[in-house]
Design a protein around this nucleic acid. Structure first.
Length: 272
DNA sequence: ATATGAGCCTGTATGC
DNA sequence: TGCATACAGGCTCATA
């Protein structure tokens, strides 16, 4: 399932294929995504040229030459491929963005948790983006931010960390990994963690995400990069999905527990 | 205000 | 072997 590193990998992968290209046609085969794709979207983007391929949180932002932006979320199972114009659509190939230059950007999403919107500038004010917290790899995110924001919070630190208003792009996998790297118990109330430990957590979040982007994105069940090659970060996960196995740091036995409705693996011995 | 739970959806894995 | 059920997950909305 695409988390931020996968989305960033996808962004980098599609950029050379779509940047500066002219949209010949947008084809929507299945409008029932996370939200219904709005009627008339096809005609609003047809003929436009792509001037930027960006990302905010896990949203891909394809900006057009009229300053409007296509906002695409890959959801849980979505992926983008670049295919030749006459390539037959496969099951769950819901959207095509065809370019006059020949290639087609194709969106596939079996579970349809993904979404497609089109917004006028400034895109940052779109309701989906307006309330989001800082980018984890941006200048506004660090341990001090986490510490200050955690004041008075009684929710588990893992839930706090996965809250988009705290920081974006940290889903279950990377929250689990970052907390282990920082030696913090995922169930600890967010407001009861020292500033110094939040410094460690902030650094852990950045380290884990950067390593994953470097590796080309984690592959779990259904993510593969834009060229169809799977990422390979999953081999490097230290705790996620490893309950019952030995902790790589202290040798203790990793446990799993439900925190905020999410399965959470952790080491009861070196995470406090 | 924060915190928790439901619901969306379907492929995959498990249990009988 | 086949079928039924549980589970996974990001995100928003509703409720306490």
């Amino acid at each position: 399932m695409p988390e931020l590193p996968e989305v960033e990998t996808t962004r980098r992968g599609i950029t050379p294929h779509v940047m500066h290209r002219h949209i010949a046609a947008l084809t929507v085969r299945e409008r029932r995504l996370r939200w219904p794709v709005s009627d008339g979207l096809e005609s609003r983007v047809s003929g436009r040229r792509v001037v930027d391929v960006g990302r905010r949180a896990k949203y891909l932002l394809i900006t057009l030459d009229d300053d409007s932006t296509l906002i695409l979320h890959l959801g849980m199972s979505g992926s983008l491929r670049v295919v030749a114009r006459d390539t037959a659509p496969q099951p769950h190939d819901h959207v095509d963005l065809a370019f006059t230059e020949g290639a087609v950007l194709r969106f596939n999403d079996p579970r349809r948790f993904g979404s497609l919107h089109h917004a006028a500038a400034p895109v940052a004010q779109h309701p989906l983006l307006a309330g989001l917290g800082p980018e984890p790899l941006g200048a506004d995110f660090d341990g001090d931010w986490l510490y200050e924001r955690a004041r008075g919070r009684r929710a588990p630190v893992k839930s706090f960390l996965m809250d988009n208003r705290t920081v974006v792009g940290v889903g279950n996998i990377y929250a689990t990994e970052a907390l282990h790297l920082a030696g913090i118990h995922p169930g600890r109330p967010a407001g009861r963690i020292a500033r110094k430990r939040y410094h460690a957590l902030g650094e852990a979040v950045v380290a884990v995400l950067e390593a994953a982007i470097e590796a080309g994105g984690t592959t779990l069940r259904d993510f593969s990069d834009v060229n169809g090659r799977p990422g390979y970060f999953s081999q490097r996960l230290d705790v996620y999905g490893r309950a019952g196995a030995p902790c790589r740091r202290c040798g203790g036995t990793l446990r799993a527990r439900l925190i905020g409705q999410r399965t959470t693996a952790f080491c009861p011995r070196c995470q406090r």
